[in-house]
């Protein structure tokens, strides 16, 4: 086991060593060029710094081509370091600040302006891409208008009849999502407060009740995709509903109602439509084990 661990560690170290070494080489090159600037072009460097600081008009022709070239070289090398960066560096990070400083110098010196801007955009896009892929957590509160059907069986002395209950009501709840610019992974839970009426599917059997209260919890996990610039979201959802709804037995002897399962797993689709921090959402799910559905339409607020 120990040998395997050491071998793996060795392979990892071997594989990353050239990268580290290469980065160090680039850093050293930047330092060397900076040293060269300070030693051989100190006059020009001080002038440029002071003119930029004092917001003075700069005449690019008063600077030597070599001085400009070294500045561009440093700028390019810093870009090389930044483009390899996998983490999100803020614009205030020292390397990014240094990069901006050299961009400013080159722009004032009017040297290779197109290339300078192209490199600058490349680096900005690189960090924008890293930022877009970074996940952050968000809480939402919502209230859904919900409707769902539920099956039961009326056992009779001569057999049985299927019953169906159509429920409607509200489900206030909370959602937590980890999301980046493109994807959202979330969990949510809400408290079901609904009521419904029950009838027999067989029209020859008369069994009806109305306004039967149903309470429970609906919890879901979901994966979503942001499909527009306004962050409208669409995705798949796996809700699980735990419900309690008591049906009365008919008064006649030998008749008894057997309620369906209390735990209903489902699979469905959802969409979410933001308007500022507010949003409205839709959900349509089918029960995994029954030919029945639950749908919801809700409003909410994102924190």
């Amino acid at each position: 086991m120990a040998i395997k661990f050491i071998t793996t560690l060795f392979i990892i170290l071997i594989s990353i060593a050239p990268v580290v070494a290469k980065d160090d080489i680039v850093f050293n090159q930047v330092k060397d060029f900076q040293k060269k600037l300070k030693q051989e072009y100190s006059q020009e460097l001080n002038n440029l710094r002071s003119q930029i600081k004092n917001d003075e008009t700069i005449d690019p022709d008063s600077y030597t081509e070599k001085f400009k070239k070294i500045n561009f070289k440093i700028y390019s090398l810093i870009a090389k370091i930044l483009i390899k960066e996998k983490r999100l560096l803020s614009p205030e990070h020292k390397t990014r600040k240094l990069f901006s400083t050299y961009r400013e110098r080159l722009s004032q010196l009017e040297y290779q302006e197109l290339k300078v801007e192209k490199i600058f955009d490349l680096i900005n896009n690189h960090f924008k891409n890293i930022e877009d892929k970074q996940y952050s957590g968000h809480w939402r509160l919502f209230i859904d208008y919900i409707s769902w059907q539920y099956g039961a069986v009326l056992n009779k002395p001569t057999g049985s009849s299927d019953l169906v209950i159509t429920n409607k009501g509200i489900c206030p709840g909370v959602n937590y999502a980890r999301e980046n610019k493109f994807l959202s992974f979330s969990v949510d839970a809400c408290l079901l407060q609904t009521s419904g009426g029950v009838s027999s599917i067989d029209p020859t059997v008369t069994y009806t009740q109305s306004n039967i209260s149903a309470t429970g919890i609906k919890s879901s996990i979901s994966i979503g995709y942001f499909a527009s610039a306004s962050k409208t979201e669409i995705g798949f959802k796996i809700p699980l509903m735990l419900i309690s709804q008591d049906l009365e037995d008919p008064p006649a002897v030998g008749y008894k109602v057997k309620e369906g399962t209390n735990l209903i797993p489902m699979a469905g689709v959802y969409s979410r439509w933001p308007i500022g921090n507010y949003f409205f959402q839709t959900e349509f799910s089918k029960y995994l084990e029954e030919d029945q559905t639950q749908w919801a339409l809700g409003l909410g607020y994102k924190f």
Partner: peptide, 16 residues
């Protein structure tokens, strides 16, 4: 299309 009927005294299975 999932069609659901709501009524105070009746409940029927959805139409698909």
């Amino acid at each position: 299309y999932n069609t659901r009927v709501f009524g105070p005294e009746t409940s029927v299975p959805d139409n698909w």
